[in-house]
Design a protein around this nucleic acid. Structure first.
Length: 490
RNA sequence: GCGGGAUUGGUCUAGUGGUUAGGAUGUUGGCUUCCCAAGCCAACGGCGCGGGUUCGAAUCCCGCAUCCCGCACCA
């Protein structure tokens, strides 16, 4: 299905909708999760915990969203998480100053060039607005972080632009108190904030959004020494690099150099396993190796996990080898030692400043892809079906009396009460049975339990399967078990 | 941020200055109904915000905001 269909479903059934929408000064880039959306998100996160955090023995933390200025001096965000821009004084078009100059003088402009130098170049070469030939303003900076002031004296701080900085800041303590050994992964799911110039497309580019990030701390000399690699060596990965698309096993990708080491291959494989269980069509997904000019300022090697949608290829997860960029930065600014002890591998030292490989996941984008890949227009049966994996469905089972008559209704309510504490169940007795099935189909409810006259005679009910519309009859005594089996996480 | 288009019940939409603002769908209640959006009755619910023009504005003009498309930007 396409973006419009997903958006209409989201609005009409309360998966998500614009924030502050009753006010005219509502800002773009902020969206709310409704009841179905938050349930879907929670189940998605639970699958993430299962397939990544627990599977790999990661530590999970939950850090502050507001962090002090020093954090972002150390991380480089105050200097690098902003773009030099110039504005045309006539048509007020805005351009990236470094790129404009680079194109005009046909040379590469260094990343760390000062604004004054950039402006000097603009004047020296008489660079004008590409659109209207108007004069360009002074170079200014647009920082993507939201600044906040704390307390009565208004101390400067920032909303975190990525969740991972808490992990780096907390690393030294966590390593000690959790008795860690390299390699160790630390995970966090939470909100991040970026002051995007042009938020677009509902959940795709937000100013406030959830990230689920994993930072793997490792000894840079031991990147091929991963005990658990055998678990994933046969996982098939689709990897695109400058030589084209490769469909290879994790082990094959390492041996022929498509992936530089086993550590990266191992975590890409875990991520692949996770996404293959979300219901995203993996034949429309790939890991794309980024070229040097696409990478973030801190990355030395980067793969994006991308999924094809009606909006084109969407980046869901940035997988960056950040080397020691972050720990080194925090070590220098805070004077806190971030080195840890590892085994002595024969070079006479066991002290190491860990390197980091990260999996930085955009939660909203992932949920959007799941919705788009799951939504199906079943023309044969004249219905819209959200074919979510049962374990991700916001409402897991509908409980429906076949007719609204005293005895059947009472029995149905009794069964609903029996289920509701263990299973996300929804009771519905309004309208015809077909209409109620359709409503459940549209929000992705995988099963419907129907109570009919036979229930009163022999204590059985039917379970209807959303995708096949087939029904099986089970005893009420077995119902909870029957449903639990079907709803189990994979 | 630039250019273009758009904004009417929860959702989709008709409406070129005077309409009781229409329909579909939905929701609620009732009747009917024992398996896939059936039918009947009733009810609920709307012109993005702010200015202006006009005797009169959903409709014309200006500003703002949001949404969509393209450009630019994007960890």
């Amino acid at each position: 299905m396409n973006y419009d269909a997903v958006t209409e479903l989201a609005l009409s059934r309360g998966f998500y909708f614009p924030s502050c929408e009753i006010y005219a000064d509502a800002q773009a880039g902020f969206w709310e999760y409704g009841p179905l959306g938050v349930a879907l998100k929670n189940r998605y996160i639970e699958l993430w915990r299962r397939e990544l955090v627990r599977r790999d023995g990661m530590l999970e933390i939950d850090g502050s969203q507001i962090m002090s200025k020093s954090v972002f001096i150390a991380s480089g965000h105050l200097n690098s998480f902003n773009d030099p821009i110039v504005r045309c004084s006539r048509c007020s078009s805005v351009y990236r100053a470094d790129r404009l100059v680079g194109e005009a003088i046909n040379a590469i402009v260094p990343e760390r060039i000062a604004d004054e130098e950039l402006y000097a170049l603009i004047q020296k070469h008489n660079i004008r607005c590409p659109k209207c030939k108007g004069e360009l303003s002074n170079v200014s900076r647009f920082n993507m972080m939201f600044k906040v002031s704390i307390g009565a004296d208004g101390s400067e701080a920032y909303l975190r632009p990525e969740t991972c900085q808490s992990i780096f800041v907390d690393f030294a303590r966590l390593f000690k108190v959790m008795r860690c050994k390299l390699p160790i992964a630390i995970a966090q799911v939470g909100k991040s904030f970026r002051n995007e110039i042009a938020p677009r497309q509902s959940l795709i580019r937000l100013r406030e959004f959830y990230q689920a990030e994993i930072e793997v701390f490792c000894n840079p000399k031991r990147l091929d020494d991963i005990d658990r690699f055998d678990e994933v060596k046969d996982v098939m990965l689709r990897i695109q690099d400058s030589n084209g698309m490769h469909e290879v096993t994790a082990a094959g990708a390492v041996s022929n150099g498509i992936i530089p080491n086993r550590l990266i291959a191992y975590y890409l494989a875990l991520l692949n396993d996770f996404y293959s269980k979300t219901g995203i069509d993996m034949s429309r997904a790939r890991f794309r190796k980024l070229a040097d000019d696409e990478k973030a300022f801190y990355a030395t090697v980067a793969y994006d996990f991308e999924v094809e949608t009606s909006l084109g290829w969407l980046e869901l997860v940035a997988c960056n080898y950040r080397s020691d960029h972050d720990l080194r930065g925090h070590m220098q600014v805070s004077k806190e030692n971030m080195e840890v002890m590892d085994a002595d591998y024969g070079d006479g030292t066991s002290k190491v400043l860990p390197h980091v490989f990260e999996l930085s996941m955009g939660v909203e984008r992932s949920l959007y892809c799941i919705l788009e890949h799951s939504l199906y227009d079943d023309k044969e049966n004249d219905r819209l079906v959200l074919r979510l994996k049962p374990y991700l469905a916001p409402i897991q089972v509908g409980v429906l009396p076949i007719v609204k008559k005293d005895e059947v209704e009472a029995k149905a309510k009794e069964i609903f009460r029996m289920l509701r504490k263990d299973i996300d169940a929804f009771y519905d007795d309004s309208g015809s049975i077909g209409r109620r099935y359709r409503r459940l189909d549209e929000i992705g409810t995988p099963y419907a339990v129907t109570i009919d006259r036979q229930t009163l005679d022999d204590g059985t009910v039917t379970i209807r399967d959303r995708d096949t519309m087939q029904q099986v009859r089970v005893r009420i005594d077995d119902l909870k078990d029957e449903l639990s089996i079907r709803l189990k996480m994979p």
